[in-house]
């Protein structure tokens, strides 16, 4: 703990504001929740590595569906939104409400781009024959990335409300900065979950001459 933090201890038994403590406890529980979802996806990829069968009865491989350029783009967008969120929190601590609004608008915009990419990806996968019902892969993939997408959507909604609330003049002082910081914690958490999903769900599929799960790479299976 730095001296700056010590100088701003909250008047609670832990020295931590209750809102912040509760948010961290929630994030800790959400961390275990996502840990379970990611574990389930990876285990079922190991047990059923052959991909899925589309509506016409053809065996398909997930690497054929993935668009690594699109996913990389959305990953970059989410990372930069996290950066803007950090700047928004910093602006609120300094009492610069206009800077806060600018940065939060950027976060909302990037969050919406990310959600747009995910909707496009889901639609594309669905039309290629991967549904939540036709394979174990579809079930675990859609549940995992869909749950993450829902978290992003909740974060975007939260920030939109906070943006408009800032015009009422009630989002100021220490409590206002704390409210923004708590929203920021949630947004950064969504970002770190995607950091893991990007590697564990997307990138590993491209490893090795036959793919990480030994099912072949797109060039081989097309």
């Amino acid at each position: 703990m730095s001296e700056t933090a010590a100088a701003h201890d909250a008047p609670t038994s832990t020295g931590i504001d209750h809102k912040k403590l509760i948010m961290w406890l929630f994030l800790a529980s959400d961390c275990m929740f996502f840990g379970t979802l990611i574990s389930t996806h990876l285990l079922y990829r190991k047990l059923y590595p052959s991909g899925f069968t589309d509506a016409e009865g053809h065996q398909r491989f997930i690497q054929n569906l993935f668009n690594i350029e699109l996913t990389s783009f959305s990953t970059f967008i989410l990372l930069m939104s996290s950066f803007l969120m950090a700047l928004a929190v910093s602006a609120m601590h300094k009492g610069e409400i206009k800077s806060f609004r600018r940065n939060v608008l950027g976060v909302i915009f990037f969050g919406l781009i990310f959600l747009g990419c995910q909707v496009f990806e889901f639609t594309h996968f669905y039309h290629q024959g991967l549904t939540i019902q036709n394979s174990v892969l579809g079930s675990t993939f859609y549940v995992l990335t869909g749950t993450h997408g829902t978290h992003v959507a909740i974060g975007v909604l939260w920030l939109i409300l906070m943006y408009f609330y800032s015009f009422t003049g009630k989002l100021g002082g220490h409590m206002g900065a704390l409210d923004v910081e708590v929203a920021g914690l949630y947004w950064h958490f969504v970002d770190i979950v995607w950091i893991i999903i990007f590697t564990a769900v997307y990138l590993v599929e491209y490893l090795g001459p036959n793919g990480f799960w030994g099912t072949g790479l797109p060039a081989v299976t097309k």
Partner: peptide, 14 residues
């Protein structure tokens, strides 16, 4: 991200 963006490096150890 958790240390700097989420301020864990600046906040209480708890």
């Amino acid at each position: 991200v958790i240390l700097w963006f989420m301020h864990l490096i600046y906040d209480k150890r708890l």
